[in-house]
Nucleic acid binder design. Sequence first.
DNA 1: CTGCTTGCAAACGGTTTGCATTATT
DNA 2: AATAATGCAAACCGTTTGCAAGCAG
Lengths: 144, 144
Amino acid sequence: MTRSPTRHPSLAQRLRARGWRMTPQRVAIVAALDDARAHTTAEQVHDAVLRGGHRVSLATVYNTLSALAAMGELREVHAGRRSAAFDYNVDPHHHVVCDVCGALADLDPGVARGLRLAASQSNGFEVHGVEVVFHGRCRACAAR
Amino acid sequence: MTRSPTRHPSLAQRLRARGWRMTPQRVAIVAALDDARAHTTAEQVHDAVLRGGHRVSLATVYNTLSALAAMGELREVHAGRRSAAFDYNVDPHHHVVCDVCGALADLDPGVARGLRLAASQSNGFEVHGVEVVFHGRCRACAAR
DNA sequence: CTGCTTGCAAACGGTTTGCATTATT
DNA sequence: AATAATGCAAACCGTTTGCAAGCAG
């Protein structure tokens, strides 16, 4: 089969290809992200790394996640007043966030399809992205 | 002309009607809000009050704006990582925010009309509100 | 006179940074 | 060896809070 040798399927490989030094800390952080494959905060990633038996400072987790977000390997989501979430899924989609417990869930990607165009016509604004966050109560919190 | 005596057109009057003690600090804050009639941060309101020759602590501004938001007289908007904005316009509408200078502008209220229903069908989620924030660069920042 | 409101200053929580040390390439 | 990444602790910034003093109703 013909496969371009410059394609790197895993996150770790893509980072290596970008010239990233793959320190044990970065390996552990990337492993935690691959394992979760979901919205995670810096603290959650840090906890997961520690639980895995590795010692990484929270500052390094923050720096690493921010760098990954800056290069488009993660998407940073600021939902409400709580801490930032880093989304493993970088495809365009939106979220619902629970006002009570802060839970973050995905919304159908078909929703809000025509919105981007509409925004670009607003005040000569140059649109880079859209953050659509519905807030309310998740099923669990609404039940009690 | 027939006008109900229980209707209070001004913000100050509505607050009085709710039993709020109209201290000089609150009068000054409300005056600043009425004057701006726009998105303002706590700091901006504080500055405006000081410029008007009144002495109000920043803590009081924060407490007052939060209370007004809690009673629906302002809408709190969290756009991106910057500080919260308090929106004088509480009617449903959305925003565009500049990644460079943080400027916040309104978006056509017709946009995103069907979104709320869609969200309410997501995971049994009970929707209280929607924050739709487009980000990118405003005309001024895109020009330089 | 009652108790809500204020101001201060300190605490707070998430995040970033300066700098000396360490480790990858 | 050269250079990039780490850890620590302190700084940071927006926001909140505890408590004594003040003032509106």
